[in-house]
Design a protein around this nucleic acid. Structure first.
Length: 524
RNA sequence: GGGGUGGUAGCUCAGUUGGUCAGAGCCCCGGACUCAUAAUCCGGUCGUCGUCGGUUCGAGCCCGACCCACCCUACCA
C-alpha cells in the first residue's frame, strides 16, 4: 500500500523559525496523525533548505562557512522546534545531505540528456554595488532611471550564461492537467491564481548560477551551481529515493511513497510548487503530486507577521505559556485552513480558557470527580438508555463522521468544530441530567451509573478524535479513563471507529489525574 | 496597467446550488445549579450583510460600476 505522503516546505535556514513555519508543520502533523489513526501507511517529511546566496551572505557576515552556519541553525533552532510543537515527522531532509545532492545531480543530468535543459543567457538588471542581479519589482525610480534600492544608483542590464529549463514547453500541459484535476491546487483561490498565471504563458527558467558557489554543482559544468529553487523543490522526491536504480532500497521507498498526496505550502511559494515543480516532474516523466495546498498568512494586528515589524513570534513564546496542545488546537481551530488568519494573544487566551479549560478540561474533571464520588472510581455498567442518552450516543457518531470527512479534506477548523460541539453537548447533558441530584435517592443509583457511563464513553470518543490535534492532553485523558487496559494505546485507536458506542468497558478505573488544561493567569 | 482574494453584530468569523439568511463564538447584563479548573446551563442587548444601480415574485448570496484592504505580476527564498 502506498503511504499517504505529506510534506511541509523545507524551511530556509537563514533565520530562526517563527509561528508561521510552525503553523505549516503543525498542520502537516495533525493531518498525518489523523491518517495514521485511520490505519493508513503514512510518510511525513519536513526539512531545511540550506543553499543559496542569502545563506552564504549570512554565514559570511557571521564569519563562518555556510555549512557551519546551516548546521548551527538546524541543530539549535529547526530541529528543536519540532519537539516544541510536538511534531512527529518520519524524516527530516537537509539539502546539503549527500542523499539529496547526489539525486539532484543525477536527475538534472538526466533532464539535460533528454533535452530539457539548454545553455542560454539570463539578462536582467544588475547592481554593481551589490554585485548581484535585481528584481524588476525591487527597483526604485530616481529621476526616471531604475535604481538599486540599496545603493540608489542606476542598475545596468547585464547578461550571464546560465543553464535553462524549458519551462515554457509545459504551459499547455499544466493547464490541461489542472483542468482535469481541479483538486490539485487548493484552496480554490490558489487554483484561480495558478490558472490565470499559466494562461499568460510561461517563460523558460534559468536554473543555474555562476556568481556564487554555495549550491549543488551542475554536474556537467563545475562553474555553475544549481539555482536554489530547482534544488529545493526536488527535496520532496530525493528524500524518498528519486530515480534510484531498480531493485534498490531507494527505489522500493519511492514506489511505496511517491507521488506526494499533499504538499503543504504558504501561499507565497504557491507558484513554485504549482507551476515549476510539476513541470520539472513532467520533464522527468515522474508522477505529479496529488495536491498542493496553499495556506494563508498569520496576521498580527492586521498585518502579515514579519521580523522587521517585530511581529515575528517564536513558537516557544506561545508554547511556554499555553503548551504545545493549545498551540496546535488554536491555530487549526481558529483559522480556516487556506485563508489568512488573525492571531492575537487575547484571542488565544480567550479560546484556551473557554474551549479547552472550561469546556473540555472541566468536563473531564467533573466526570472523574463524579465517578469517584458516586461509583468508587470504577466505571459501572450502564442500564437502559433514555432519549437524552441517545442524543449523546448519536452525537458522538455524528461528530466522528463529520470530523473524519473534514480532516480528510484538510478542513481542520471544521473537524475540530465537530468535536468541540460534541464536547459542548456533553457538558449540557451533564448539567441537564443532574446526576448529583439523582444520586440523592439510593434507589436511583442505576440511573446515575448510566449517566456516568454515557459521560465517560463520550470522553473516550473525544480522546480518540482529538488525539491528532492534542496528543499530550488526550494521552492524559486516556490514562484518566483507564482505557488502555482494555482498549490498548490511544494512538492505535482507529478514528473511523471512534463513533462506535460502548467501547469503554464497565470496570474501567477512572482516576482524577492532572488537570488537562489548567487555567492560566493573564500575561500582558 | 493586468490578475486574485476579502470588506456580515464591539471583537474573531460561518453563511452550500438566491426564498425563516440575518447567524455562531467571545465580550457584556440577568437568572438556574453545585459534579467540576469561581467551571456548567438558561435568557437577553448589539448589525440598512463596503457603496450605488440592475436581474428576480424574492439577493450577503446573480450581474454591472465604484470605494477600501491585502496579495501576485516570474528567477530573494
Amino acid at each position: 500500500m502506498k503511504a499517504f505522503y505529506v510534506t511541509t516546505p523545507i524551511y530556509y535556514v537563514n533565520d530562526a523559525p517563527h509561528i508561521g513555519h510552525a503553523y505549516t508543520t503543525t498542520a502537516g502533523d495533525v493531518l498525518t496523525r489523523w491518517h495514521r489513526q485511520r490505519g493508513e501507511a503514512v510518510w511525513f517529511l519536513t526539512g531545511t533548505d540550506e543553499h543559496g546566496q542569502k545563506v552564504m551572505r549570512t554565514a559570511e557576515a557571521n564569519g563562518v562557512e555556510p555549512q557551519v552556519w546551516a548546521d548551527k541553525l538546524v541543530d539549535n533552532a529547526w530541529l528543536p522546534v519540532l519537539d516544541t510543537i510536538d511534531a512527529r515527522n518520519d524524516d527530516f531532509i537537509r539539502t546539503t545531505q549527500p542523499r539529496h545532492m547526489e539525486r539532484v545531480q543525477r536527475f538534472l543530468a538526466r533532464l539535460k540528456d533528454e533535452g530539457h535543459i539548454y545553455e542560454g543567457k539570463y539578462e536582467g538588471p544588475y547592481c554593481v554595488g551589490c554585485e548581484e542581479f535585481k528584481l524588476e519589482g525591487d527597483l526604485v525610480e530616481v529621476d526616471g532611471a531604475k535604481c538599486c534600492p540599496v545603493h540608489g544608483r542606476p542598475v545596468e542590464t547585464v547578461s550571464e550564461v546560465n543553464w535553462f529549463f524549458r519551462l515554457s514547453a509545459y504551459t499547455d500541459a499544466l493547464i490541461a492537467h489542472y483542468e482535469a484535476h481541479p483538486e490539485a491546487v487548493r484552496p480554490q483561490s490558489a487554483y484561480n491564481e495558478v490558472m490565470s498565471f499559466l494562461r499568460q504563458g510561461l517563460q523558460d527558467l534559468s536554473i543555474s548560477r555562476s556568481t556564487f558557489d554555495w549550491g549543488i554543482e551542475v554536474p556537467w559544468d563545475p562553474s555553475q551551481v544549481v539555482y536554489v529553487w530547482f534544488d529545493a523543490l526536488l527535496n520532496y522526491a530525493t528524500a524518498v529515493g528519486l530515480d534510484d536504480p531498480a531493485g534498490s532500497e531507494g527505489a522500493a521507498k519511492f514506489a511505496a511513497t511517491w507521488p506526494a498526496d499533499v504538499h503543504l505550502v504558504g501561499k507565497d511559494i504557491l507558484r513554485f510548487h504549482a507551476v515549476i515543480w510539476p513541470a520539472m516532474l513532467m520533464a522527468g516523466g515522474v508522477a505529479l503530486p496529488k495536491c498542493v495546498f496553499a495556506h494563508g498568512w498569520l496576521l498580527v494586528g492586521g498585518e502579515k507577521m514579519s521580523k522587521s515589524k517585530l511581529t515575528g513570534i517564536a513558537p516557544a513564546q506561545i508554547i511556554d505559556h499555553f503548551g504545545s496542545d493549545a498551540f496546535r488546537y488554536y491555530f487549526l481551530r481558529a483559522i480556516t485552513f487556506g485563508a489568512d488568519g488573525s492571531f492575537s494573544w487575547e484571542d488565544m487566551s480567550a479560546r484556551y480558557t473557554a474551549e479547552l479549560a472550561n469546556g473540555l478540561g472541566n468536563l473531564a474533571s467533573r466526570a472523574a470527580a463524579m465517578v469517584g464520588k458516586y461509583s468508587g472510581g470504577v466505571l459501572a455498567a450502564h442500564h437502559d438508555y433514555t432519549t437524552a442518552d441517545h442524543v449523546i450516543i448519536d452525537g458522538l457518531a455524528t461528530a466522528a463522521a463529520r470530523a473524519d470527512a473534514c480532516m480528510l479534506d484538510l478542513d481542520f477548523a471544521g473537524g475540530i468544530a465537530a468535536v468541540k460541539e460534541f464536547v459542548d453537548a456533553v457538558n449540557l447533558y451533564v448539567t441537564e441530567q443532574e446526576p448529583w441530584k439523582v444520586a440523592k435517592d439510593e434507589a436511583a443509583m442505576p440511573r446515575v451509573e448510566t449517566i456516568l457511563y454515557v459521560i465517560c464513553e463520550a470522553l473516550r470518543g473525544i480522546a480518540v478524535l482529538y488525539n491528532a490535534v492534542m496528543p499530550k492532553a488526550m494521552g492524559e485523558l486516556w490514562a484518566q479513563l483507564g482505557a488502555e487496559a482494555s482498549l490498548g494505546g490511544l494512538d492505535g485507536q482507529d478514528v473511523r471507529d471512534a463513533g462506535t458506542w460502548g467501547q469503554l468497558p464497565a470496570g474501567s478505573v477512572i482516576t482524577k489525574g492532572a488537570v488537562l488544561f489548567p487555567r492560566l493567569e493573564d500575561v500582558a
